[in-house]
Design a protein around this nucleic acid. Structure first.
Lengths: 166, 166
DNA sequence: GGTGAAACTTGGGACAG
DNA sequence: CTGTCCCAAGTTTCACC
């Protein structure tokens, strides 16, 4: 299983840094139960291995003026690989599109978008998304309210799994 | 407009910490063009005001053994406020559900879920999600591949807006 | 907003199990 | 290849202007 080559200390480090990415190394070392230098070496190794892809401040989008969050389900006319990647490339270039995932089923992509207000989202929709070549259908759903938005991964599930498979 | 009470230095701080949340305060101060102590004061103020909600390491879910990512569209039988919040409360308790957003339109909620593999997602689906009271319909879509997953907010859009409205 | 100084943290080197 | 101990350089964070 993936993740099994990490020892319990590495997993604890990842869990702690996922919960608080600005913790100092000495605090982190204390929490995972080793001294600071090996702890820092482990963090660097995890970063270099790509297990830690980065650190980000979690900014309040609404307070900053992004009042609108929208999910858009996009269907393409052609699902040839070159057309799929062309659409993905477009999504990467649009700043209002924060996430783009290719899905199975009737819809090809789901996009998570933010915008300062409804009208700027509408102008993105009609002016950019709906006019890109090969886009056959777009269904949008406004987020009325957010109930949960946890970044990352549930480490407790991982630990439980490793336990029962041991 | 919200976000307007922040001066350009505050916005730069937020943008920098969103891009690299582990940057040292002196590096941050250098980038935003002030000295370290006032920079730290601003960061603390932004944290206390809730504009910075936290800092998180971005961990590679796949490498850690969470191979499966699924979007679930959930419709409820009753949309009374107490039933909506009861469902939200359930979602908060499920570790596999990372995000839960209430939507407008035909579907009531969209859930973003992760799981170690398809079978553990299926057992969550049949054993928990589909059996919770008031859940009328669930449509799931597997993520085939991720094309973009940027955390946070597009600060360049914000700056452009503030510029034209000035 | 800046300065200086004390306390703390980082991250390297030497070394033990 | 782990870990611990120690130390210099750099960072945080205070009081004060």
């Amino acid at each position: 299983m993936a993740g099994a080559r990490l020892d319990p200390i590495d997993r604890k480090i990842l869990a702690e840094l996922q919960a608080d990415g600005r913790m100092t190394n000495v605090e982190l070392a204390k929490r995972v139960g080793i001294s600071a230098p090996p702890c820092l070496r482990r963090v660097r190794t995890l970063e270099d291995a790509g297990l830690i892809k980065g650190y980000h401040a979690d900014v309040d989008a609404r307070e900053l003026g992004f009042e609108v969050q929208v999910f858009a389900m996009v269907g393409l006319a052609s699902q040839a690989e070159s057309d799929l990647s062309a659409f993905e490339e477009r999504c990467r270039a649009w700043p209002l599109v924060r996430e783009c995932h290719m899905l199975n089923g009737e819809v090809d992509f789901i996009l998570k978008c933010v915008a300062p207000d409804l009208s700027s989202f509408q102008s993105f929709l009609t002016g950019h998304l709906l006019t890109t070549p090969n886009v056959a259908s777009v269904k949008t759903s406004l987020v009325i309210r957010g109930a949960k938005d946890d970044p990352g991964v549930p480490f407790d599930v991982l630990e439980a799994r490793l336990q029962t498979s041991a």
